[in-house]
Design a protein around this nucleic acid. Structure first.
Length: 597
RNA sequence: GGGGCCGUAGCUCAGUCGGUUAGAGUGCCGCACUGUCACUGCGGAGGUCGCGGGUUCGAGCCCCGUCGGCCCCGCCA
């Protein structure tokens, strides 16, 4: 007597892939897709597939009627069938170790074709070394691609992660509250997706770039701890890890400090990683933004690797080349990286590192290898013996360095470091390296416009120790803004919000936001904050990216059922698409497309 | 907005210096086959070389444009 399957219905008793040796002897009824067929003439084997996996269904004259064998012989891939049969143990020499159901098979007694299928445009069943179809075709024929066990595993993992996130949030007292999808532009600064209003000609809703303002208003409204698995929309150009619509685990809580928020986020991340089979330690280490830039040249450092940036400015001696001295004289610093064993790198490898340095704005990359006979390379000549002595190193070392202002040299050397970490001979010291980046600058300078912009959003509270600088040296203010970083990936970010109207006013003034615009865009938030706002702060985790990383994938498209292309098209449904003149007229919209010259 | 890579049979790819009839594997169709598991063997069908233009006696191959996909920069806190 066995327990009935959760998946039993009026039309089936089990999922194909969930049968095991304990079911041997049972008469079962299965439904599934024909994954592959192997016909030996009067014996036909079918691999039947469903979301639980594959099982071999054997059609053999010893237990199958002749018409079943004949029908099985004609089955094409991806046909949906229902089969009746008896679960039988396979003889030892016929066990398939690669299948979850490899020790058993179904002895088919009846077979019904319930969903005939045309020959699939792209293969669902793949041989061991067979490549995937082109991504374009996978997106166009998404239902077939989604049938592949790999993608099904990803979607199942995604589901489990969502449940874990919900449970973790709920168990810490967070209330799941939905916020509008048809809304008003939010302060993230990306382009909005707009939705025309039919009843208000000429007016538009915006899809939310995040529920930022709503969640702050929920704090004002007394909901204390809010979370949402929130869909967000940003009309910006895409990347492998960026989709126009994406999902955040969004949270906000009241009467908290930065540390309180971080503690909650850490617990959620522990739960998510555990669900994927990884035990991780908390609390994560904290790095200030400036420390991260100094040591790693980036605000999302991959701490699985060493190769930290070092400041060698003080090592420079009188015998160094003039250009080195000149670079330092104009305010630059010498930033170097030591690569143990790096002397084995070829000239081509080093040239590639130099190209990275140059494309990131450095004049060039100085390098030297420590060999049996001493330092070699252009860097050794440029620095001179005295400086090399100070920099030091053992035989086998490579040193690379660049001179420049921190705003250029640190990010550039950070990219050089990243390239070093990606080299196959450099194994990560650990599999999971989390950290918090804290004390971000409150503002950053926009290179294009020369204007200051909020580095997070305009409601981020200045660091209490820096509030006094707001009027005098605002660009030196740190923010109560923190990012969670994992293996060089930004998982999410958050901040403690401004609840003091005077501070908020100052921020808008510094950002040169006109009073009219403040009222128009953020009036309902400011009014809310004036209604009695508790101190509050929150966070948003990029859920798709987390699912991607835990699935071991490098593209968001592998963890989203129906993703968009890099041109923001949906190849499967064919969105976006033109609409009829009638629909446009109803929305009071006239379309004018600029002719290409 | 900019840069790079790619586009040849349903799918994955090869295609030499620009040369006459564009190939392979797989899938598909047919035949054979009683223990296969990427079954095997034999036979067959299958091509707008993304699209448009140009150079040339001749273009899958060279040039220009264009469309689509992917990756990156800008952009996206």
């Amino acid at each position: 007597m066995t327990v009935a399957s959760t998946f039993a219905t009026s039309r089936r008793s089990h999922l194909c892939g969930e049968l095991r040796e304990e079911h041997v002897g049972e008469t079962v009824r299965l439904g599934g897709w024909v994954h592959r067929t192997r016909s030996l003439g009067s014996i036909v084997f079918l691999d039947l597939r469903d979301r639980a996996g594959l099982i071999q269904a054997a059609c053999d004259p010893r237990f199958s009627p002749a018409d079943v064998i004949a029908a099985a012989d004609r089955l094409g891939a991806e046909t949906v069938v229902e089969v009746d049969g008896v679960v039988a143990r396979r003889p030892a020499e016929m066990v398939n170790k690669d299948m979850g159901t490899g020790t058993i098979e179904l002895q088919v007694t009846a077979l019904r074709i319930v969903g005939p299928a045309v020959t699939p445009a792209i293969p669902v069943a793949r041989g061991k070394d067979e490549k995937l179809a082109a991504e374009e075709l996978r997106l166009k024929h998404r239902i077939l691609d989604l049938r592949r066990p790999e993608l099904q595993a990803n979607m199942i993992l995604r589901h489990r992660l969502l449940q874990v996130a919900r449970h973790a949030m709920s168990s810490h007292g967070f209330l799941e509250i939905e916020t509008p999808i048809l809304t008003k532009t939010t302060p993230e600064g990306a382009r909005d997706y707009l939705v025309p209003s039919r009843v208000h000609p000429g007016e538009f809703y915006a899809l939310p770039q995040s529920p930022q303002i709503y969640k702050q208003l929920l704090m004002v409204a007394g909901y204390d701890r809010y979370f949402q698995i929130a869909r967000c929309f940003r009309d910006e150009d895409l990347r492998a890890d960026r989709q126009p619509e994406f999902t955040q685990i969004d949270l906000e809580c009241a009467f908290v400090t930065q540390e309180d928020v971080q503690a909650v986020v850490e617990r959620v991340l522990v739960a998510l990683w555990k669900e994927a089979g990884h035990d991780i330690a908390i609390p994560f280490q904290r790095l200030s933004w400036s420390t991260s830039m100094e040591r790693f040249g980036i605000d999302k450092p991959d701490l699985r690797y060493g190769f930290e940036l070092e400041n060698w400015t003080a090592h420079v001696q009188g015998d160094a080349a003039t250009f080195v001295h000149d670079g330092i004289t104009v305010g630059g610093l010498l930033r170097g990286i030591r690569v143990p064993g790096g002397a084995a790198l070829s000239r081509k490898d080093i040239d590639a590192l130099a190209a990275t340095a140059k494309s990131n704005g450095l004049g060039g990359l100085l390098w030297a290898k420590r060999t049996e006979t001493g330092w070699e390379g252009q860097g050794a000549k440029a620095f001179g013996a005295g400086t090399m002595e100070k920099i030091g190193g053992v035989i086998g070392d490579l040193i690379v360095a660049g001179v420049g202002a921190d705003s250029v040299a640190l990010p550039a050397m950070g990219q050089v470091r990243l390239e070093l970490t990606r080299r196959p001979e450099h194994a990560p010291a650990t599999a999971h390296a989390f950290c918090w980046i804290v004390d971000f600058p409150l503002f950053e300078l926009d290179a294009a416009s020369g204007e200051h912009t909020p580095s997070h959003h305009p409601f981020t509270s200045p660091h209490p120790d820096d509030v006094h600088k707001l009027e005098s040296v605002p660009w030196e203010c740190r923010a109560m803004h923190y990012d969670a970083v994992y293996n060089g990936n930004e998982l999410g970010s958050g901040s403690i919000r401004i609840t003091d109207p005077a501070v908020q006013e100052t921020i808008f003034r510094l950002l040169k936001v006109p009073a009219e615009e403040i009222q128009r865009r953020f009036g309902f938030l400011l009014d809310g904050l004036a209604a009695g706002a508790p101190p509050h702060g929150g966070f948003a985790l990029g859920f798709d990216r987390i699912a991607m990383l835990l699935a071991g994938s490098t593209s968001l498209r592998d963890v989203i059922a129906f993703p968009k292309t890099t041109a923001a098209r949906a190849l499967f449904e064919g969105a976006p698409s033109p609409v009829s003149a009638r629909e446009l007229a109803a929305l009071n919209i006239a379309v004018s497309i600029k002719e290409q010259s």
